[in-house]
């Protein structure tokens, strides 16, 4: 019997400081055992448990993309016991990785459709995975227009900035970066993400889906904007977070009604969420 609690051993291959305040770092992991990377095959939108022996486990969205091979990446905010410990770890350290866990953005359903991605703050990780996946030469033709609004407090708080600026130059994706307040040498938008989304977002219709990921306050102001743009509730896709332990739907704490965020989620449509208690 396969043991779903047993993590794959991994080594930290690289650590990058992801934001100017150093509260986020991107960890690149390589699998120690041959064959584990194949077993870890994931889709954009899934998460995994970062497992540090003696400290504990933390569920984090996968920031690398299924089209990137040889490693997996996670961008982690230093917040609690496990993430603080992780921020003090070094390249070469060994730990565990358990997953991939949860569902993913509905890639089958999104084929042939326009995709409007709205991200805020630290929650850009699985969105980065998704865009990288869609922009891959093997996949780009499967999707219609790709639009993106990503907002952060300041230029230095934008995750994956260099990569985004590269993508911004492409003509097969329509990228809008925004910061909350004016800053020197900033050539992009200034203003809160939802306000920019209202100005530049593609109109909602049967062939256009919105994926929104961000802090609760951003989601709160983004949903009315998406409605105004004409997005139906089953065309608005969100990703939830809740406290988790097992990540496989057994330990009982992350439920919202009958749905378990770890296994039935973390990705839900607004239509689905409106049928569940708001316990997230």
């Amino acid at each position: 019997m396969n043991n779903p609690y047993l993590p794959y051993p991994v080594r930290i291959d690289d650590i990058e400081i992801a934001t100017e305040d150093k509260s986020l770092r991107t960890f690149k992991f390589v699998f120690l055992n041959e064959g584990d990377e194949e077993k870890f095959a994931y889709k954009a939108g899934q998460f995994a448990e970062l497992s540090i022996p003696g400290v504990g486990e933390i569920p984090i969205g996968i920031a690398s993309s299924p089209v990137e091979k040889g490693f997996v990446k996670f961008t982690v905010f230093k917040a609690g016991k496990v993430t603080s410990h992780l921020h003090n770890m070094k390249v070469g350290d060994v730990m565990g990785l358990r997953g991939p866990l949860g569902n993913w953005y509905p890639w089958d359903k999104l084929e042939g459709k326009n995709v409007f991605i709205i991200g805020g703050g630290f929650a850009f990780t699985t969105l980065r995975s998704s865009i990288k996946y869609m922009l891959d030469p093997a996949n780009r033709a499967k999707f219609g227009g790709i639009h993106m609004v990503y907002g952060a407090r300041s230029p230095g708080m934008i995750l994956y900035r260099d990569e985004l600026i590269e993508w911004e130059k492409r003509d097969d994706i329509n990228i809008h970066l925004t910061i909350d307040r004016e800053a020197p040498n900033w050539d992009y938008h200034v203003g809160l993400g939802p306000n920019i989304a209202e100005k530049v977002g593609p109109p909602g219709n049967d062939d256009t889906y919105a994926i929104a990921c961000g802090p609760p306050i951003m989601i709160k102001f983004t949903l009315p904007v998406l409605e105004k743009l004409g997005y139906a509730k089953d065309h608005i896709i969100l990703s939830l977070e809740n406290r988790m332990k097992c990540g496989i739907g057994m330990c009982g704490r992350c439920n919202i009604g009958r749905e378990l965020v770890c296994k039935d989620g973390p990705v839900f449509t607004l239509e689905e969420l409106n049928l569940t208690p708001k316990e997230y």
Partner: peptide, 30 residues
């Protein structure tokens, strides 16, 4: 419902599964 916790003594440790309860505020605390 259960919790998962690591217990270390010296250089050796175990990962345990313990009964948990939905009555505890810690059960769901972010």
């Amino acid at each position: 419902c259960f919790d998962i916790q690591d217990e270390t003594k010296g250089n050796k440790g175990i990962r345990m599964k313990n009964w948990d309860t939905c009555m505890s505020p810690l059960f769901t605390l972010h």
